[in-house]
Amino acid sequence: MSANAKSKFTADIKMRNGHEYSGVEFTTPKSWDKEVAVKINGEKLKIKGDSIDHIVFWPTKYPDNPQIICWHTYGSIDNKTGEYKPNCGHNAKKGEPSKQWFAIHAAGEHVNLWSCFSSIKLTGETVSFTTTLSSPYFFQKHDGLFVHIPFTLFKSGKTREWLSTFFSDGYSQQIDPLWII
């Protein structure tokens, strides 16, 4: 990409402190973890994922194809007790909840479906998210928690049992809402 070339993506970035960056050049790196690189008025800036509420971005040539991503903690629920347990370990400091980049897959009135991803690719006007996980999907209720949807080929009823627990009244968590959609 030459210095005068347009960015493949344009983004609106909403920060947790309420500040917003609108219409910035957004480059998706091949491997990224905890920060995002943007160009604002020609100046390069790296923004820490923890300070970002969410990013709405679109292919610069196709503004009618917006995508929503966020850097968020995640966990799982015990299908017997309904208790939420944050994932502590992957890419986190010892004892802190793990975080991952997520893309909205489907937004609903009561539940959002997110997919974690490791890279973003643009082919024409199509934005593709790739992951290395066999089960990259997470639900988010109004409590703001991202909860992994388990899947295994070896136990066909596991996902059905888990969904029954997740959507029952037994699963609840007292936490400030982080509902962004």
Rank of each mutant, 00 (worst) to 15 (best):
P97Y: 03
W32R: 11
D12W: 00
G49S: 07
H142S: 14
S135H: 15
K121T: 10
I149D: 04
V147P: 05
E20Y: 07
H110F: 07
I180Q: 12
I181K: 09
S128W: 11
P136E: 07
D50N: 00
T131I: 06
S164L: 15
S128I: 05
D64V: 05
G108A: 14
I120Q: 06
L163W: 00
T132K: 14
D64I: 04
E109K: 11
N87L: 03
N41T: 10
G18T: 06
V127P: 00
N65T: 14
T131F: 08
F167I: 05
I120K: 01
S76G: 13
L133I: 09
L145I: 01
K85V: 03
G18R: 05
L113C: 08
W32C: 03
T27E: 14
K99T: 04
H90R: 08
F26V: 04
I120E: 06
G75C: 11
Y137R: 04
H110D: 12
I47F: 07
W32Y: 07
K6G: 03
V127A: 07
K61N: 13
L133E: 14
T73K: 10
A92M: 01
W58G: 00
P97M: 06
F151L: 12
I77K: 00
F167D: 14
P29S: 12
P136L: 08
I47N: 09
D33T: 06
D78A: 09
F117I: 00
F102Q: 01
D176P: 09
Y74Q: 12
K85M: 02
K8H: 03
S31G: 05
S168W: 15
E20S: 04
A37T: 09
A3R: 09
V36Q: 04
S118E: 15
P97K: 01
W114H: 08
T60C: 05
D50C: 04
I47P: 02
K158Y: 08
L133S: 15
V127N: 02
S51Y: 15
Y171W: 08
Y171Q: 03
A11Q: 01
Q140E: 15
D33L: 07
R160D: 10
K44E: 15
F146L: 01
K141S: 03
E161W: 02
F102E: 02
G23K: 04
A106H: 10
H105D: 09
N79C: 13
S2T: 04
N91L: 11
P177F: 00
K61M: 10
S118W: 02
T159E: 13
F151Y: 15
I13T: 01
Q173M: 04
F26H: 06
A5P: 01
S22M: 09
I149N: 00
F9A: 02
D169V: 07
I55M: 11
W101F: 02
I68N: 10
K99V: 10
F129N: 06
S164R: 15
S168G: 13
A11N: 10
K93T: 11
A103G: 07
H54C: 05
N65A: 12
K94W: 06
P150A: 12
G18Y: 08
L145Q: 11
F57P: 00
T132Q: 14
K61W: 00
C70K: 13
F9K: 01
C116S: 10
G75L: 12
Y84V: 12
K85W: 05
